[in-house]
């Protein structure tokens, strides 16, 4: 069993400096790893990323993150990634990391993700170049998530994204904006690799709990949803894929 702490959408900046740190000091009592599900900053600047680093660096457990759409707003995502990596916060984008936690090899694959919508109500890679660019961005990201999850040599696999892989965790958001909040292509990549858990953020008015069509638990950890510094999931790997059981 591994204790996975997670939070997304902390939207830090100089004005929120130090707010979260007190609750993080005893993180090691609660969890074995901390996942950050994107939108770490507000405007996506390096200055805000420094606040993020000061808040989440040098914690008693490893910290693994993906960036979100806010972290891309100022086109400084590469600098933000480098800064956080330099402070020991591992930022994933189309790759993964395997951590040995309490004897269990926990593999985490991460991507930002993107929109497009969900099965039967989604955009297609067709028509104007702007539409093809939009959907093509998601197609490429989902493929990288699929490959990153497949490459993990681990006892437990976790998918970390900012955008949602299922509509379940968007309940509370207007259905009209679901195509801007996630894509079924992410869920498909997660199911193809029989992940043990999928964690995302982005949907502030959504719901914490969801399930992929393949039976993988999905958790929306956007901070306005969980309403704490982080939440903790005690996860035991399934061992047998859901599809093999039936």
């Amino acid at each position: 069993m591994t204790r996975i702490a997670a939070v997304g959408d902390v939207h830090l900046g100089e004005d929120a400096r130090g707010r979260m740190r007190p609750a993080l000091e005893r993180l090691g009592d609660h969890a074995d790893v901390l996942l950050l599900a994107g939108d770490l900053t507000r405007h996506g600047t390096v200055e805000e990323a420094r606040v993020v680093a000061d808040e989440f660096a040098d914690l008693p457990v490893p910290v693994v993150a993906v960036l979100g759409n806010h972290d891309h707003h100022s086109d400084q995502q590469d600098e933000i990634t480098a800064l956080l990596d330099d402070r020991g916060i591992r930022v994933l984008e189309g790759d993964g990391v395997v951590l040995t936690l309490d004897g269990c090899r926990v593999g985490i694959a991460g991507v930002k993700g993107f929109g497009g919508g969900f099965a039967g109500k989604c955009g297609s890679n067709f028509g104007e170049r702007e539409m093809k660019a939009f959907v093509g961005h998601t197609v490429g990201i989902a493929e990288r998530l699929r490959e990153a999850l497949a490459a993990l040599d681990a006892d437990m696999k976790i998918a970390l994204t900012h955008y949602a892989p299922v509509p379940d965790t968007l309940r509370g958001e207007p259905p009209e904006i679901h195509p801007f909040l996630g894509s079924y292509l992410l869920g498909e990549a997660i199911d193809a690799n029989h992940a043990d858990l999928a964690v995302h953020g982005h949907a502030h008015f959504g719901t914490e709990h969801g399930l992929t069509p393949g039976g993988v638990r999905v958790r929306n950890v956007a901070q306005p949803i969980i309403r704490t510094a982080y939440t903790v999931y005690d996860v035991r790997p399934a061992g047998v894929p859901a599809s093999a059981a039936g």
Binding site: R3, R19, A23, H30, T228, Y230, T231, V232, Y233
Partner: peptide, 8 residues
């Protein structure tokens, strides 16, 4: 932004 109570 308090510490969580319990775990799932």
């Amino acid at each position: 932004v308090g510490e969580p109570v319990g775990q799932e």
